[in-house]
C-alpha cells in the first residue's frame, strides 16, 4: 500500500502542475493579506477566491492525472496487486499532494497573518474541499473511458457547484417566497459542499446578521458546536461517498 502511494506521489510531484498551484495560492494569499490591513477582511477576500480556485484545480488536475495514468494503471493491474489498492493509492496520492499544496499556499500565510478561529476554519474548509473535489474527480474519471468526456464532466461538475446550483436555489427561494424557506435552506446548503464551506467560515466571522432572517436561522443551526459538527460531517460524507462509489466501479471495470 505505502509503496504504491510512494510511486503515485513521486509521479505527481514530477509533474510541475502541483508546484505551480502552490505558487499561485501563495501569491494570491500573500497579495490579499498585504493589500488589506485588517486580517479578518483579508480572510473573507481570500475565502471568495479559494472557493473558486480550490474546487476547480482539484477537479481538473485530478481528472487529467487519472486519465494520464491509464498506462500506469493498466501496467499495475496485471501485477499481483489488489485493484482497490491501486485506486486508493492514487486517491491518497492526489489528496495528500493537493492538500500539501493548499496548506503551504494558503495555510501558512493565514496562520502567519490572520491567525484566528476564522483562519483555522478557512484552512480546515479548504483542506476538506480539496479532498471532496479530488473524490468527485475520481468518480468522473471512472465513469467514462473518453478523456475529453471525463474532463468535460469535471468542468460541468465545477460549474454546477459554483454557479448553477446557487442559481437553482435562488430561483426556488423566489418562487416559494410566500412560504418559510429558512429550514429547507439548511438542507439546500448541505447539498453543495462549496456552500457548506462558505457557511462554515462566514458563521465564524459573526457577520451572519447581514444575511437577514435566513442568516439568523443558519446561525442558530450552524453556529452552534453541534451545527459545526454536522457541517463537518456533511463535508466528510461529501469527500467519502464519491470516492467509495468510484472504487466500487473501478473494481469491476474492464481495462
Amino acid at each position: 500500500m505505502n509503496k504504491m502511494v510512494k510511486y503515485v506521489m513521486i509521479d505527481i510531484l514530477r509533474n510541475k502542475m502541483v508546484l505551480g498551484y502552490t505558487l499561485l495560492l501563495l501569491i494570491v494569499s500573500l497579495s490579499v493579506f498585504s493589500l488589506d490591513d485588517n486580517p479578518s477582511r483579508g480572510t473573507i477576500s481570500l475565502l471568495n477566491l479559494i472557493l473558486i480556485i480550490v474546487p476547480m484545480v482539484s477537479l481538473l488536475f485530478s481528472t487529467i492525472y487519472v486519465y494520464n495514468s491509464t498506462e500506469f494503471i493498466e501496467l499495475l493491474v496485471t501485477q499481483p496487486i489488489k485493484r482497490s489498492n491501486i485506486w486508493t493509492s492514487i486517491l491518497a496520492g492526489l489528496m495528500s499532494s493537493l492538500c500539501i499544496a493548499f496548506f503551504v499556499g494558503v495555510g501558512l500565510p493565514v496562520l502567519f497573518f490572520g491567525n484566528s478561529q476564522t483562519g483555522i476554519a478557512l484552512i480546515v474548509a479548504g483542506l476538506i474541499l480539496t479532498c471532496i473535489f479530488v473524490s468527485l474527480a475520481m468518480l468522473a474519471s471512472v465513469s467514462t473511458r473518453d478523456k475529453a468526456k471525463g474532463i468535460g464532466l469535471a468542468i460541468l461538475l465545477w460549474f454546477y457547484f459554483t454557479i448553477i446550483y446557487d442559481g437553482i436555489v435562488l430561483f426556488t427561494l423566489f418562487q416559494f417566497s410566500d412560504f418559510p424557506m429558512e429550514r429547507p435552506m439548511i438542507l439546500f446548503t448541505a447539498l453543495n459542499p462549496i456552500d457548506l464551506a462558505r457557511i462554515m467560515i462566514l458563521l465564524k466571522l459573526d457577520i451572519s446578521a447581514l444575511m437577514g432572517y435566513t442568516g439568523a436561522v443558519l446561525k442558530d443551526f450552524f453556529g452552534t458546536t453541534w451545527g459545526f459538527g454536522v457541517t463537518l460531517s456533511a463535508m466528510l460524507i461529501w469527500a467519502f461517498v464519491p470516492a467509495w462509489i468510484s472504487l466500487r466501479r473501478f473494481k469491476s471495470k474492464d481495462l
Binding site: 509521479d11 495514468s69 491509464t70 498506462e71 499481483p80
Partner: peptide, 16 residues
Amino acid sequence: RRTIGYMPQIGQYPQN
C-alpha cells in the same frame, strides 16, 4: 498473478 508473466500486445508504460 504472482505466478504469471504477461507480455501485452501493446505495452503501455508510464511515459515519463
